[in-house]
Design a binder for these strands. Structure first.
Length: 217
DNA sequence: GACCAGGCACATC
DNA sequence: GATGTGCATGGT
């Protein structure tokens, strides 16, 4: 079966099993960007409680984060782990928005996605996954987000090799799907939800894999 | 108590 | 360029 077809079947199977994701959880594009940084190697529950603290302190705002003492910012986001590093990362994001977007992240929507991606990647603390999450989920650009789950599931389906890079994995999707921001959004969300529900690191198979294997045969 | 969670930067070889 | 390590909390 062609790769395009296998990806389509996988998408349909996950959507059928789980329903629409309505991602990313977050009320505003800036909140989404903050969540993208806070969730680095961290359980989403912990991120939620950190974001709640920011909201209560009226700190979910680039200017507020820019002006806040690092220690205080760290205390607010403590539940999300790595809080000293992440406080710095949020500061760096706010500096970037001040310099590039007049403090309003939505102002970045006019930019060329790949050019903007390269620029966002210069922010210390923002790597490929975080950058792509901001581009797709906060700015609604046709950029596919790759994470550990994506690699794990695609490997199990034999769609890519075990040692493939972030870029190769990303190309698997962008080479085979229409560059539709909403489709990229939902596909990645379904992958994460599938992995969370059924596809733990230690188990060789998951329910959605069985579903998809059936579809392939 | 070990293991895991929607990574990333930096040092070292 | 590959490989190793620090960063840190909270749930299972």
């Amino acid at each position: 079966m062609k790769t395009v077809t296998r990806l389509q079947r996988l998408y349909e199977a996950m959507l059928e099993a789980l329903g629409p994701s309505h991602w990313w959880p977050g009320d505003t594009p800036f909140e989404i960007a903050v969540g993208a940084i806070l969730t680095q190697n961290t359980n989403w529950k912990n991120v939620e409680s950190a974001i709640q603290n920011l909201k209560q302190d009226n700190a979910l705002d680039p200017a507020a984060i820019l002006d806040m003492p690092p220690d205080h910012l760290g205390e607010l986001i403590r539940p999300s782990g790595y809080f000293r590093m992440k406080a710095n990362k949020l500061k760096n994001l706010a500096i970037f928005l001040r310099d590039e977007a007049d403090m309003v992240i939505e102002n970045l929507r006019d930019r060329d996605p790949q050019e903007l991606r390269a620029k966002i990647l210069t922010i210390n603390g923002v790597g490929p996954e975080t950058a792509d999450s901001i581009l797709n989920y906060a700015l609604e650009m046709p950029v596919f987000v790759v994470d550990t789950y994506t690699g794990r599931i695609m490997q199990r389906h034999g769609l890519i090799s075990e040692d493939c890079s972030y870029h190769e994995l990303q190309n698997l999707f962008t080479d085979n799907l229409e560059p539709d921001p909403a489709l990229f959004n939902e596909f990645h969300a379904l992958i994460v939800r599938t992995a969370k529900d059924w596809c733990k690191k230690t188990s060789p198979r998951c329910e959605s894999c069985h579903l998809a294997y059936d579809l392939e045969n």
